[in-house]
Design a protein around this nucleic acid. Sequence first.
DNA 1: GCTCTAAGTAACTGACTAGTTACGCGTGAG
DNA 2: CTCACGCGTAACTAGTCAGTTACTTAGAGC
Lengths: 219, 219
Amino acid sequence: MMRSPAAAVAKRNPEQTKERILAAAIDVFSSQGLSGARVDAIAERAGANKRMIYHYFGNKDQLFVHVLEAVYGHIRSHERELRLDDLDPIAAMRELVRYTFDYFLGNPHFIKLLNTENLYEAAHLKTLPAIRDMHMPLTAQIKAILDRGVAAGVFRNGVDPVQLYISIAGVGYFYHSNVYTLSTIFGRPLGAKDAIDERRAHVIDFILGYLRVDGTGNG
Amino acid sequence: MMRSPAAAVAKRNPEQTKERILAAAIDVFSSQGLSGARVDAIAERAGANKRMIYHYFGNKDQLFVHVLEAVYGHIRSHERELRLDDLDPIAAMRELVRYTFDYFLGNPHFIKLLNTENLYEAAHLKTLPAIRDMHMPLTAQIKAILDRGVAAGVFRNGVDPVQLYISIAGVGYFYHSNVYTLSTIFGRPLGAKDAIDERRAHVIDFILGYLRVDGTGNG
DNA sequence: GCTCTAAGTAACTGACTAGTTACGCGTGAG
DNA sequence: CTCACGCGTAACTAGTCAGTTACTTAGAGC
């Protein structure tokens, strides 16, 4: 029997099919949650057959695990490319805070996937043994900036890098994560460009204002 | 036909049935999300018949709207009972930050429900016209503390109450919301009492350290 | 050019799910 | 007392879902 024209166009390409499924899964899981996501919807968006999802990823939950691994890998690898060692401590910290804020802004799916995973109490993430190693450079990176700042006499002493990172991420994450409910309860369009620019400035001011020994956010 | 003994025990009580359904809905929606929640599960947990959910609340989504209204009402009404006017500005701010942190700690369902609602971009919350009025006292409360602090010369000038609230909430919310993924990626039990106490102190130090003109969190 | 393995497809299935139907019964107003 | 209305129940339905089966086809290795 003749192959249909449509089938003739789509050549075999296992790697690309896997990639397309993963990208579609990021889209659908982040917009619908884990329970709300439909495997059929992921297959359709990927332009792949549903059977291929089970072939490459096992089941819906394992596909979600692969999604988490991919998105964590993305943010952490971009973070490592910042080359903060080339900047003075204050500029380095400002850049880290800005990057973190803008990463959340530019990658809303990351926030939604993390919120979904926390709904399930990190059950999927816990099955990824490499995830912890992936985050050790981040802690080291922050510790290095803090140490340099303390040595230069510009940062306060005794700040825990992990606590600080949670605060840096928190002031940005919460804004982006809850922009819909916050805009509604306060009656302000917090998703508008002006509001986001204002928030970015506030967040940088906030972190630097806390860290600097003279208490200002100016550098 | 004779009524069963079990049915005889359960007397009619519309108010209590509504309450039980709402409480069960908070439990199930917060642990399973909106898509993951099963109407049958809510009915069973409420000890009510599924038909009663449709009788009192219309459908699953409208039930979720009632849940949001109930939980927002709870946090905001408790906030108003803090009587922060009786405290000096620094003590008042410290108490507001502590309350906010401990409210999230003691009400994990609140965080999970808000995350779920943000997944749906506040579609349900937007149908509650009273929600904005419910939050005006909060903004006013924070503004009053800030104004008193500036007048007393202990707080920096020009801080936007809404931006500040988002930061106060953010540094606590993110910690509690993402405690599962953060504990996993950093390999620390952030849900343990010691870690929570440390975080609470850090958060208070952080907000006060930013606000105070001398840059310390000490009062 | 043949064969074997893996990529890919379509139709299917059993379990589940939101919402409905039809009816029984408790209670308070008159 | 009584009866209408609203509380409450069980069984049902139409549709949906994750995962499977049975199959075809592409292409690498010989």
